[in-house]
Every structure is written in C-alpha cells, then in structure tokens.
C-alpha cells in the first residue's frame, strides 16, 4: 500500500517547482517548468533519501526506527537531548563507528539521529527537499555544504554499506547506486536545486 502511494506521489509531481542556484548563499526560490522523469537527478536523489536506510534515523518524533519494516527501535530507544540517545543509553552503547558483523549492529562515524527539525518521516519528496534547503531545518547549511553532507558524510554514505542484520542477512541498500546518487545530487544542485511541485 505504501509503495502504491509512493508511486502516486511520483506521478503527482507536476511541472512546477522551485529552483536554487549553487552559491554560498542559500538561493531564492524560483518557479520552473522542469519535468520529472525516472532518471532525472531529483528523482534519483529522492529514491535514496526516502529509503528506510535514511528515513529510519530521520524520524518525525523522538523514536528512531529500524529494520526493513521500519519498526520503532527496540527497547524504547529515544533521541535524548543531543540526538545521541540518553545519558545511560547512548547510541554508542551499541553502535560504534563501523558495522559489527558479529552482532549485526550497524555503525558509522557520528552514529546518531538527525535533529528533530530535520525529520523526513511522513514527508513527501518535495517536502523533504524543501526541508533540506531550509537553513532553519538543515543545520544552517548552504547549498554547497548541503551537497557536501549529502555526498561525503560517512553516516550518509553508510547507506550503501549497511552491513548485516542480527541474522547475518545483508541490509537492503538504497535502490540507486552510490555513484549514481552522488552524481545525481551534484547534478541537481548544479542545475539550480530545483524542487518540483507536488
């Protein structure tokens, strides 16, 4: 059902969008007529960013999700004051800077939840894009910094090396290859970071 809605939202993406220029300053929003196709950079990028490997840790609320079915993180794990869990139950209580194949516990540098204002869970692709471009909700990043985060940050790139789960079964990576994704993010940004209308 969720998958169908997902397709529907893709189809709904109309011909109106917003454009951003790749400068140090965050761009003004500019309407465009850019068309959305299955291979266009925005779609490719969003195919990744809306994947559970990303959204599980961009929850709308204080509870991370986990697993291929995006269930709430076991044991009532919560965000905590600094997105790294609680005083006695930090993310690092279980997660280290690398995946652990023995336990199937995933890990990457700076393992943490995205700050609450960066929540993506429940947002449409365009809403996620607007959120990413909004300095109030993207950690004050300009577009260059945003691209850097999206294409270079180890926690983001972990999605393509998500390791194995507790059963030793490889986690599902996003549906677009890392190289193609990085290319798409850069192309999208260079083309003005256009966000198609819903």
């Amino acid at each position: 059902m969720r998958f169908r809605l997902f397709i529907a939202s893709l189809l709904l993406m109309g011909s109106f969008g917003l454009a951003y220029s790749l400068s140090d300053r965050l761009p003004e929003t500019v309407p465009t007529n850019q068309e959305v196709t299955a291979e266009d950079p925005f779609t490719l990028m969003m195919n990744v960013l809306t994947h559970k490997r990303c959204v599980n840790c961009h929850p709308n609320g204080d509870r991370p999700r986990q697993g291929e079915d995006s269930h709430y993180h076991n044991f009532g794990v919560v965000r905590g004051p600094d997105n790294h869990g609680l005083e006695g139950l930090t993310c690092n209580t279980c997660h280290q800077s690398e995946n652990d194949d023995f336990s199937g516990v995933p890990g990457a540098p700076e393992w943490s939840l995205a700050p609450i204002e960066m929540y993506w869970e429940g947002l449409s692709r365009t809403e996620i894009a607007h959120s990413m471009l909004d300095p109030e909700r993207n950690g004050g990043r300009n577009l260059k910094e945003l691209v850097k985060h999206l294409t270079e940050h180890e926690l983001v790139l972990w999605a393509w090396e998500p390791g194995v789960n507790s059963e030793g079964i490889p986690r599902e990576p996003p549906p677009v290859s890392k190289e193609k994704y990085i290319e798409a993010v850069k192309a999208w940004a260079e083309a003005g970071a256009v966000v198609p209308a819903e």
Binding site: T90, T93, H95, Q96, S97, D100, F102, S103, V105
Partner: peptide, 27 residues
Amino acid sequence: CGKAACGACTVQVDGTAIRSCSYAIKF
C-alpha cells in the same frame, strides 16, 4: 545474545555503558 540486545555483556568504556558483544577490540 551477542546482538547487543540483552545487555548482559555491558561494560564501561571511558565511563559510557557499552555492549561489549558489538564492540570490536580495535576500538
């Protein structure tokens, strides 16, 4: 459990509670 789920292996690393079954020795 060996899966960082039950907590029976909890130790402290620099004062933080750590599940030692999911903590590679190199760290």
